[in-house]
Each structure stands twice: as C-alpha cells, then as structure tokens.
Amino acid sequence: MFLSGLTTNLGALLSTKVLEKWPVIARHDRAAEWLQIWTDLGRAPRTIDAYARGLAEYLEVCDREAVDPLRANRAHLAKYVRELSTRPSKRGTNVVSLDSGAGLANATLQQRLVPVRLFYDFLMEEGLRESNPVGRGRYTPGNRFGGHQRGLVPRLTKLPWIPSDQQWLDVLTVARDEPVRNRVMLALAYDAALRREELCSLRTDDLDPGRRTLRVRAEATKNRLERVVPYSATTGVLLSGYLAHRATISRARGPLFLSESRRNHAQPLTLWTWSKVVRRLALAADLPRFSTHTTRHLCLTDLARMGWELHAIATFAGHRSTESTMQYIHLSGRDLAEKLQRGMDQIHAWRVEKLAMLGPDLVSAGWK
C-alpha cells in the first residue's frame, strides 16, 4: 500500500524536521502524503516547514472540533479563520505590529490559509472532493457587485515601512560601534537590496572586488533567479576590512560571514543570528519596526526616487514580475510627484496667460 511506503519515506525526509514538530500531520495520511509530494518536488526546507505549520494548525482545529478535514465545508473554515484572527500572540508585547489588534496580521492569515487551500486543491485532484472550501478571490461574470468574488479573508495591501532620513542616520549611528562583520552586512544589505537569506548565504567566491559586484546565487533567492548586483565604493572599503578580519578566523574559502562565538566559532552565520543583530540595532535606535528586510525596501525605494525604470529596478531586486516592483514606485511617490508638477506647470502657464485679460495697459506698465 502506498501509505505504508510513504511512512518509510517520511521517516527519512520529514520525521525529524516536520513530523516530530507537527505530529498531527502524521495522524492524517492524506496530509502527510500531500506534504511528501512537495518535499519530493524539491521545495525549500523553509517552505515545507511553513506549509506544515499552516496545515498542522488547521488539522488541530479539526481534531478539536471533531471535524473530518476531508469533509469540512466553508463554515468550518470560517471558524478556523475566526480563531486565527482572535488568537492572542504567544510573543505578547514583543510583536512589532498586529493588524487585527488581537490575533494574527492580515498577511499572516493569508500565509496560514495558503497550505490549507493547496491541500484541498490536492484532494480535488485526487477525486476526494468536488470543491475547495477555502476558495480564492476571483472574477465572476454576472456578479452584480463588480464581478468579483471575495476570498475567505479580505486581502489588505500595504506599502512597506521605510525609515526617514533621520531614522536611517540613527540606525547607522548605533551600528558604528558594531563589529566590522555586522557593519559590512548592513552596508551590503542596503547597497545590493539583499534579502536576509541572500545576505547570509553569500560565499567568498561570490565576490568580485575588482568590479565591486557580487553574485546572488539562484538557490539562495526567493524565486530562484540568479543575479549580479553592484555595491558602492564605501561598502567596498568596509568589505576589504572584513576580509582581512575574516582571515584571522578562517582562511578557508566558503561562507563569507562567519560566527565568532565560542560555541559556533568559524561556522556560517545563521539567519537567526543576523535577525537578532538587526533587532538589537533597531531597539537601540528606538525603531522597533526596523527589520532585516527594511534595508531592501529602502534601497529599492531610493532607486525609484532616483528615476530608475521599472524593469531596471525589477532586475536589480530579482523580481520575476514587475507587480512586486510597483510598490516601490508607489512608495517613492515618483509618478505622483511628476504628474503633480506637470499639472501645476500647465495650470500656472494658463493663469499667467489669462492675466492679460486684466488689460493691455499692463504691458506698457511693465507687467510681464
């Protein structure tokens, strides 16, 4: 039987990292089968963990409510959403922002529902269900309310937060006292608009100091798009100093950023360590909203402000679609500012022209 063989495979691929963390999945054969398929397709471990977490939370609610997930309907999903939107955060006051005021933020709610939706898509493909109770927002011909059917949870689209010039200076002032590794990481994160995983995954052979460029490898990116990006001369000086310092820790080629702690000396720096560094800097600068992704948002917004074309920013950022890039155009206010200026110029010219209606004697009196 397939599921008996599946258990063996899961023991090798998922037990230590997923099934032991989310044992409820092991109690639902179809859920384990679905997760195994995504693992076999080569999805990133973090993606698998996110899928497992979202589905496990849903299955736990089903078990508590005595609902068979294979037969759940939209009403059951609505109860699950209500629980997510009212659930107190385990992190309490350490949470930076909660849109709902009590439970999970809107973006997090959407993330939790993605694996549940995909799970029901799988059940439909297997012929175990005729419909997906999660559904998705879509255009519906004939709908008198604009022809659009709402998804289970309304999607809020917010622009990312970026610091003001003074707030950015406050962060840099605090960072001046940091070790050279942390300073060069902060500089590269901004200069090259790097995501956290891209930054921490850099290797020594990804650098080209002569041309001041670095290669962001496909396997480290969110959408598996490799790119080469430049960094500034200022960052190049910092990087040169760090490379000299790194040689005192390890002369071996490999991961660029190394841990200097006693426990993990000379080991690759982890994502979580970098997150803790940035969090500490943010609190010291009294900017709790500053995160590892803020530098990327700030860089791309600055490029939009400087007049970079949309496709150029998308290439620099490694976006597969320019839809993701458009938020930085909006955030910069570039298009609105240009349109406003053009409009004001036209209005001004029109008003000056009409001043001539005050009388021909204005010209002879020196009015222009």
Rank of each mutant, 00 (worst) to 15 (best):
Ala252Phe: 02
Val216His: 08
Ala233Leu: 12
Leu238His: 02
Gly241Glu: 15
Ser261Thr: 15
Ala220Leu: 04
Arg251Phe: 04
Ser240Thr: 15
Ala218Phe: 08
Tyr242Ala: 08
Leu238Val: 01
Ile249His: 07
Glu260His: 03
Arg253Ser: 15
Ala244Val: 12
Arg217His: 10
Thr235Phe: 01
Val229Arg: 06
Ala218Gly: 08
Leu238Tyr: 08
Thr221Tyr: 11
Tyr242Arg: 07
Leu238Pro: 01
Tyr231His: 02
Gly236Phe: 10
Arg224Glu: 03
Glu260Ala: 05
Arg251Trp: 08
Arg227Ser: 08
Pro230His: 09
Gly236Cys: 06
Ala252Gly: 02
Arg224Tyr: 05
Thr234Asn: 14
Ala218Glu: 14
Leu243Cys: 05
Leu243Tyr: 05
Phe257Thr: 00
Pro230Asn: 08
Thr235Tyr: 04
Thr234Leu: 14
Arg253Thr: 14
Thr234Tyr: 12
Phe257Cys: 01
Asn223Thr: 15
Val228Cys: 04
Glu226Ile: 00
Leu225Tyr: 11
Val237Ala: 13
Thr234Ser: 15
Ala233Val: 12
Asn223Met: 09
Thr235Ser: 10
Thr248Glu: 15
Ala252Tyr: 02
Tyr231Ser: 00
Phe257Glu: 00
Tyr242Phe: 13
Leu258Tyr: 01
Ser240Glu: 15
Leu239Ile: 01
Leu258Asp: 03
Gly236Ala: 15
Tyr242Gly: 04
Val237Glu: 14
Val228Trp: 05
Tyr242Asp: 05
Arg224Asp: 06
Ala244Tyr: 04
Ala218Ser: 14
Ser250Trp: 13
Leu258Ala: 03
Glu226Cys: 02
Arg251Val: 09
Arg253Cys: 09
Ser259Asp: 13
Ala247Asn: 04
Leu239Cys: 01
Ala244Thr: 12
Ala244Gly: 02
Arg253Gln: 15
Leu225Gly: 03
Arg224Lys: 03
Tyr231Leu: 01
Arg262Leu: 14
Arg246Asn: 09
Ser240His: 14
Thr235Ile: 03
Thr248Pro: 05
Leu225Phe: 11
Arg253Pro: 10
Phe257Gln: 00
Arg262Ile: 09
Glu226Trp: 07
Thr248Gln: 14
Val237His: 06
Val216Gln: 08
Ser250Phe: 11
Arg246His: 07
Phe257Pro: 00
Tyr231Phe: 05
